Amino acid sequence: MSGATTLPDSVRAWAESVVGPLTSLDDAPSAACSSPSRVWEVTAGRQGGGDRFWVKLAASPLAFTRETFAHRHAVSYLGPGRAPRLTATSAQHLALITTTVPGTPLSALTATGAALEAVHRKAGALVAQLHQAGKPTRAAREEAGRALRHTADRAERSVRAAGEQLPPAEREFMLAHTAGLRDAGRVPLGYIHGGLDEHALRWSGVRAPLALVDFQRARFAPVVLDFVPLACGPWVGQPRLRTAFFTGYGRRLLPEEKRALYCLTALRAVGRTARQPGPARHFPHHAEGAL
């Protein structure tokens, strides 16, 4: 994610009406996970001190609505220090002001072995809390129940649109996994983060709580969707991290979730390798290493 260096004048005026004069402003590319949103870290108050906030311009009205809802109705389930706190929103500007949270993204941690497993165990416990946040409306539950089928439909449309640009083996691989996703069966629903990669999780040491940032994709959906970025990232080749996460999460994957996760990680892996230069494609490895 990247942000413009200068906060738009209208947004700055609104922010200062909420938190007071801004004495410093920095582009904050690490304030949330990769996204088209723009984020600044600002200081309100005396120079060299004062309170620090993130000012975020959402990428779309939907992203603004989702993030606002998450902060107002779900973040409190995580407990103190585990997520930024909402200070104000402006629908006119698609802007939010939140408190900042300290910490290093998991992607930048140098921890290994048992120390890293402990981090993933805490991550599992934190994500479990989020997944249990609130109760969906009937409409939200019905939409969440259709999410995997819609994901399969989108993937299949992409394959059909690509036509002969896709190698035959890759085309058949994707179509087989879209079919498998439709046949995965009923899976548990919950309130998901929607962008749960290593960058969204912030570690401040063993004495501080693990924190989550960037809720612009948060919504009610199959909880298995939140495991895909981790299954395609740090868990590949490191099954102990996956085990630690689900120990913290409090349960193992159901058979239906295992099938769905296998298909989702396979489709994601294909999407990544399709954008890489060169003729070699080893897309099945990611899916096999994820489970």
Rank of each mutant, 00 (worst) to 15 (best):
R251C: 12
G185T: 06
A221D: 15
A155K: 02
G237K: 08
R157I: 02
A211Y: 01
T247N: 14
Q238F: 07
P239N: 13
D226L: 01
A200Y: 01
L201I: 11
F220W: 14
H177A: 04
A218C: 10
P188R: 04
L181T: 05
R217D: 15
Y249S: 08
R242S: 14
L166I: 08
G145M: 04
Q238I: 01
L253V: 06
A208E: 14
R242L: 15
W235M: 08
G180H: 06
E172Y: 01
T151P: 05
E156K: 03
R217Q: 14
H199G: 07
A231I: 03
L166H: 06
F220K: 07
L210K: 06
H150W: 06
A184G: 02
F220Q: 06
F173I: 03
V270T: 11
L264Y: 03
A162E: 15
L166T: 08
H177D: 10
G180P: 10
L181S: 05
V206P: 00
T247D: 15
G250D: 13
R160W: 08
R171I: 05
A179N: 06
L241E: 08
G250Q: 07
V224Y: 03
Q165M: 15
P209N: 07
V213F: 01
E172N: 12
E172F: 00
A169P: 07
L225Y: 00
E257K: 04
R146M: 11
F215S: 05
P229D: 10
V224F: 05
G185I: 07
V236M: 13
K258L: 13
A244H: 09
G194T: 06
G248V: 07
W235V: 08
G205K: 09
R146H: 10
L181H: 02
A231E: 13
K258N: 10
F173Q: 12
L212D: 09
H150A: 13
A162K: 11
R251L: 09
Y262Q: 14
T151S: 14
L267R: 01
G180Q: 09
P209A: 04
Y249F: 08
L264W: 05
P168N: 12
G190Y: 02
G194I: 03
P188C: 04
A208F: 00
T247G: 14
G248L: 06
P167C: 07
G163A: 12
G190D: 08
E198M: 09
L264P: 07
G237S: 10
V187A: 01
